[in-house]
Design a protein around this nucleic acid. Structure first.
Lengths: 200, 200
DNA sequence: TTCTCCATGTAAGTAGTTACATGATTGG
DNA sequence: CCAATCATGTAACTACTTACATGGAGAA
């Protein structure tokens, strides 16, 4: 009977961190002190380009703590349980290494509105028109909301660009969407007018 | 021995379609005749705002065929197997219904570059600067590529906006990114200059 | 003959969402 | 006292990616 092949002890080296882990680590490094605060910080800052749900945060915190990148201790508030966190020196270092690494920075966009618009030719022109209008209105609402937030923001203090970065990108993107919809609507209306003319 | 509990035949009512299923259905409706062609069509058109891999397409085709929304038949090319497809009238109807439905149109963006930029304050100013520069260059390359495609496109024929929609959105988005990076770099450089001045 | 493209599928693993579960505190 | 918010976690499920697997056709 052959000897089983030699396998070195599979050296449980820390698995590489996911982007979500780096977000959790980064928010801790910026001063978020609990899973709950991390979630709020994400919601108020980077959710436009990287959203995470609380169901991802708690397992991520466990991984980071096991890897020694953050430190956590229980500090209940009254009888309500609470686990406070802080980043370790190793964690700071890992974060900085990630931020300066040369690895690829993939870009991903998923927008059902654009998918629908792409297939709008399958509809009657009237329906295609109202679809485009709905998409345009959605973007218009987003722009209005973001502009409102932007002006409230200017009224307050901090001119730090990292906080307004998401605002400005959101505005730029949705304004481009509005332009595209406008053009599409013009085309459809022109085609429709031509058809009505022919019918006379 | 107890009788097994009565269970009504679980009336295999068609599960709702995912957006990916609608993409596959839509591409078939636009004339893609095989899984392979669907994949190519996605790659050349909507991949900027809805990418799918071939591993998603084949199971999706099976679901759609089971639901009677497309029809498929084997038509090997020589000895190479090939399954051709066409959309059924029911499929056309389901697609139109989806396109005109009022359901929400969520928008999702995931960009590691922006995440990194958000955490750039954790770095030395020099490193923050080179990170911002790397992000700016990435977007600049994208803009250059997209503009090239756009001008090639203009040289050919079809002025259909659905095909240029992805181009124009991509350009608008990445130009906004460049502006944001420029501003961030200016800030960092100013802070750096100030620090050097103090050191004198 | 070798490379690229055509062509279809499955398996295993990772990532993410939604729902389930619980309960305390604070402010009106 | 009731609603909103604080606060943490798990389970089940869905979606998606990467790797595995196979092989023919056509062109250079």
């Amino acid at each position: 009977m052959p000897r089983p092949p030699f396998r070195p002890e599979p050296r449980e080296t820390d698995p590489p961190l996911s982007t979500t882990d780096y977000v959790v680590l980064g928010m801790t490094s910026l001063g978020a002190r609990s899973g709950y605060e991390i979630r709020q910080a994400v919601e108020l800052s980077i959710r436009f380009f990287w959203n995470i749900s609380h169901a991802q945060i708690y397992p991520s915190l466990q991984r980071l703590e096991a890897a020694g990148l953050i430190r956590g201790w229980d500090e209940p508030h009254g009888r309500r349980p609470r686990r406070l966190l802080e980043v370790t020196e190793a964690g700071q270092q890992v974060l900085r290494t990630w931020l300066t690494s040369e690895e690829a920075m993939p870009f991903e966009l998923r927008d059902i509105a654009l998918v629908r618009l792409y297939f709008a030719d399958r509809l009657e022109k009237e329906d295609a028109l109202s679809l485009a209008a709905a998409v345009r209105e959605r973007s218009q609402e987003r722009v209005d909301t973001l502009r409102k937030i932007e002006s409230d923001y200017h009224l307050s203090q901090d001119p730090a660009s990292s906080s307004t970065l998401t605002l400005r990108l959101g505005i730029a993107f949705h304004e481009a969407m509005i332009t595209v919809c406008d053009e599409y609507e013009d085309e459809q209306r022109a085609a429709l007018a031509w058809r009505l003319e022919q019918a006379d």
